[in-house]
């Protein structure tokens, strides 16, 4: 029997004769229905973006990127709220008026870092209290605009509308991202120099055991049980390292902090930590000179090795020895 004719008409008439067409049609119809249903489900699920709660319809005006309020002394305050950002944030189901009061237009402006932190603190009382006690909070009370407040660490663009919960991978305060978040300020050499902080804390952390393990640990929380900035220094209650209260302020405190993870660690163990300092002849002379020695050795061996092979390759080739 000829299974398949050379031309399309032959093929169709063969298929019709064999009653294959109905089968094919029925099957493809079924497949099509499944496909459409599948795609529709995906689209429906995807488009089910939770819109931020906006009971007073604030976004009907405030979604305008150009919306701003002029200040008497000149300049203006942007009043734009990114609806998408707000819809993805931790507070998406909290209505605007919860923070902005039911009379938002009569609120005195401009808002300050201190007033913002205070606002967060009206719900997050415990964290706010800790923060007021911290080195950041102390400076905040003094009106210092440089300090980190709630939104500086918990939001990517320092906006209270884009705060993401700590356990989400893209949160600035997710464990893996904490060091980079601190580094926004503490990696700024000029800013730190004005506070006499000369150690390159971020670079030295990333060079150290903890930073490397964190860097290489993937993004799953189970792989991130390594120390980051906040594990040693504290988070909301962070203290200056020069302060007696700091968990890393004295060698004794540092040792106790180390022991939180390294069971049985003593002060000698803690002293092996370089305190974010670059190894130098004065901090850890042995490690410094050993590293110098090894780097010289790497150069010596490297130059000898490459020189030897280069010389040999040229000599062997010039004598055609590979052709023998």
């Amino acid at each position: 029997m000829k299974l398949w004719n050379n031309n399309i008409y032959g093929s169709i008439s063969w298929a019709l004769k064999r009653k294959v067409t109905t089968k094919i049609l029925r099957t493809s119809f079924l497949v099509l229905i499944i496909l459409i249903l599948g795609i529709a489900t995906v689209v429906a699920l995807d488009s089910d973006k939770a819109n931020a709660l906006d009971e007073s319809d604030c976004l009907s005006c405030h979604s305008d990127p150009m919306l701003a309020k002029p200040i008497v002394g000149g300049g203006s305050i942007p009043l734009y709220v990114d609806g998408d950002e707000q819809s993805a944030s931790a507070h998406r189901y909290i209505d605007c008026t919860t923070c902005h009061t039911t009379e938002p237009h009569s609120v005195e402006t401009p808002l300050t870092k201190a007033s913002l932190a205070e606002k967060c603190g009206s719900c997050h009382q415990y964290q706010y209290k800790l923060h007021l006690d911290s080195v950041h909070g102390e400076q905040l009370a003094l009106g210092n605009p440089d300090v980190a407040t709630c939104v500086d660490c918990h939001s990517e663009n320092r906006s209270p509308h884009s705060i993401i919960r700590v356990l989400e991978h893209n949160a600035t305060a997710y464990k893996k991202n904490i060091a980079a978040t601190c580094a926004v300020c503490h990696g700024d050499g000029e800013l730190m120099a004005s506070y006499d902080i000369t150690e390159k804390v971020y670079e030295s952390y990333m060079r150290d055991f903890h930073g490397k393990a964190m860097e290489l640990g993937g993004t799953e929380l189970s792989q991130l049980n390594k120390a980051t900035c906040t594990n040693c220094h504290g988070a909301h209650n962070i203290k200056s390292v020069n302060s007696e209260d700091s968990p890393v302020g004295t060698l004794e405190h540092l040792a106790a902090t180390c022991e939180g993870c390294h069971e049985g660690a003593g002060e000698e163990f803690a002293s092996g930590f370089l305190g974010h300092k670059q190894t130098s002849a004065s901090t850890v002379p042995v490690a410094y000179y050993v590293e110098k020695f090894f780097i010289i050795m790497v150069w010596v061996i490297g130059v000898i090795a490459i020189g030897l092979v280069a010389l040999a390759a040229i000599r062997y080739a010039s004598q055609h020895r590979w052709k023998e």
């Binding site: 055991f209 390294h262 069971e263 049985g264 660690a265 003593g266 002060e267 000698e268 163990f269 803690a270 002293s271 092996g272 930590f273 370089l274 190894t279 850890v284 002379p285 042995v286 490690a287 050993v290 590293e291 090894f294 780097i295 050795m297 790497v298």
Partner: peptide
């Protein structure tokens, strides 16, 4: 590191690290 720094000075750990990786 804890075991060794109970007997030896703390700088042994950063020293071991540089020696280990460069060697």
């Amino acid at each position: 590191p804890v075991f060794f720094t109970n007997m030896l000075p703390g700088w042994i750990v950063p020293t071991a690290l540089v020696a280990h990786s460069w060697e």
